[in-house]
Design a protein around this nucleic acid. Structure first.
Lengths: 106, 106
DNA sequence: TAGGATTGCAACTCCACGGTTGCAGATTAG
DNA sequence: CTAATCTGCAACCGTGGAGTTGCAATCCTA
């Protein structure tokens, strides 16, 4: 099931949420509480961001004991890139080249 | 001047606005009134979307007589793709390959 | 010059979003 | 067993965004 591009773009539109996503990606594994310690927002705010990122497919959760660990996923990023490249390919040569590379699966 | 990725993602998050952008890109040139004729929203709504797309650098306006014609730009798309690919390159091989291609200018 | 077309600005409504606080349920540690 | 953690749910608030209507200004055309 491929996710609507708008959901992914919306998920990446917010600064805090983008930071959360980058840190999850960088650390491989992270919980809402861990992330909230280094951010200027509440643990619940981070949890909401992670929930929205999950509904966009950008993140996956796994319950381990009393904590919920999150890890990043690349497929929605690739889908969003595909969309952008295919739209821009009509008049932008560099995007056309990216579209050609992005289209071939594997 | 490179535009903040969040602005671009936000601009592409809305369905109607994404449709407007695609139609501007496909037709090469378009005005708010022309676009509104084929869309289920008002001319003013389309104008707002175009204004926001312009502030994200995704579109440029040119006044011709009594009408304002818009055309699409690719640079913000490339910037957004760069951001996505570089973030995902750490754990996703396909995104790493895209990042390698997107990084080399020209 | 009068009229139709095109645009821009302003005010208004509605609601989704980011953030907070408070609390209750589960789970680990001492 | 008890206390400290970690999580999730619900209610609430303020702001901004998407959309509308109405109106004034500008520009082409007959």
């Amino acid at each position: 099931m491929t996710i609507d591009p708008g959901i992914v773009f919306g998920a990446l539109a917010d600064d805090t949420r983008r930071t959360v996503f980058v840190r999850v990606a960088a650390s491989g594994q992270a919980t809402a509480s861990e992330l909230a310690r280094d951010l200027p927002v509440t643990r619940q705010a981070v949890a909401k961001h992670l929930s929205l990122l999950a509904s966009a497919g950008l993140v996956e959760s796994e319950r381990v004991g009393r904590e919920t660990r999150f890890h990043a996923r690349g497929e929605p990023l690739r889908d969003a890139i595909d969309w952008m490249a295919s739209v821009g390919a009509r008049w932008d040569d560099r995007l056309a080249r990216l579209a050609a590379l992005a289209d071939r699966p594997g």
